[in-house]
Simulated scan of single mutants.
Amino acid sequence: MNPIFTETYKVRSTQVNLNNQLGLYGVLGMLQDIAAEHADALGFGYKELVKKGFFWALIQQKLKMERWPMWNEKVTIHTWSLPVQGVYAFREFELFVGEEKIGECASTWITLDIQTRKPIELSNDPAFFHSRTEGGLSFKTERVLLPQEMQLVHTFPVRISDLDVNSHVNNVKYTQWALDMMTERDHRNFIIKEYEINFLSETFAGDLMQGFKSRGRYLNPEKTLVETFLYAQKEGAPKPAFIAKWIAQKIIKS
């Protein structure tokens, strides 16, 4: 069996952002979709795991984009699994428009027991995951370390529409929360080039969340690249639900 799984998606009008492009939220939704499709094709998708009392949980993700596809463009995504390590499974992605490679993404997953929410040791049989053992991306997911100074910018409840089939907030929704912490001006003037997120704890309907953001830090003398950290935490919780970082590039308007 070919370890590389492929799907093609058309950018719909409902998926474009303020800049008439498929944005971060839309891309991560496509990646989640193809990951689920591939896992199902390999025999360890959602339904199969639930029968055994487990479910997949994404814990780290790192995305790099050369450019963002426009409305009506077709995005072809290739994905594959890497050999597992203990409780950790690894999945990588490449994104193309035609022959042009526009992005890459690395992700780290675990399977959790539905009742205890504790990680389950994964099979170390390479045939089980049909892992790719040669090639792949040049980077891995990493732990995101927050700066000391973070500002509270948003307080909001977890809504029913935030929940997924596992009755907790979907990982893509966490990214939407991060996007909502930025101003409209930020979204119109900057475009994300790199995005990292660590998922640290579950959140559920009715939880009251607090969103925090760092001040942007310019990474070059021209002040065209800016780094921003974000996280959200349930009020009174011992640790954040997620920690994220992105590097955004200023849009040069003609």
Score class of each variant (00 low, 15 high):
Glu94Asp: 03
Phe96Ser: 05
Gly103Phe: 06
Gly103Leu: 08
Ser107Met: 01
Ile110His: 10
Ile110Gln: 13
Thr111Met: 15
Leu112Glu: 11
Gln115Pro: 00
Pro119Tyr: 09
Ile120Pro: 00
Ile120Gly: 01
Glu121Ser: 06
Glu121Thr: 14
Asn124Trp: 08
Asn124Tyr: 05
Asn124Glu: 11
Asp125Arg: 05
Asp125His: 01
Asp125Pro: 06
Phe128Trp: 08
Phe129Pro: 02
Ser138Glu: 13
Phe139Gln: 12
Glu142Val: 09
Val144Asp: 02
Leu145Pro: 02
Leu145Ser: 08
Gln148Pro: 02
Gln148Asp: 15
Gln151Glu: 11
Leu152Pro: 13
His154Trp: 10
Arg159Val: 05
Ile160Ser: 15
Asp164Ser: 06
Ser167Pro: 04
Val169Gln: 09
Val169Glu: 12
Asn170Thr: 10
Asn171Trp: 01
Val172Arg: 06
Tyr174His: 11
Gln176Ala: 10
Gln176Phe: 03
Gln176Ile: 00
Leu179Val: 13
Asp180Gly: 00
Thr183Gln: 07
Ile192Val: 15
Ile192Gln: 08
Lys193Thr: 06
Tyr195Pro: 03
Glu196Phe: 01
Asn198Arg: 00
Asn198Tyr: 10
Leu200Cys: 09
Leu200Trp: 04
Phe204His: 14
Ala205Lys: 14
Gly211Lys: 03
Ser214His: 06
Tyr218Leu: 03
Tyr218Val: 07
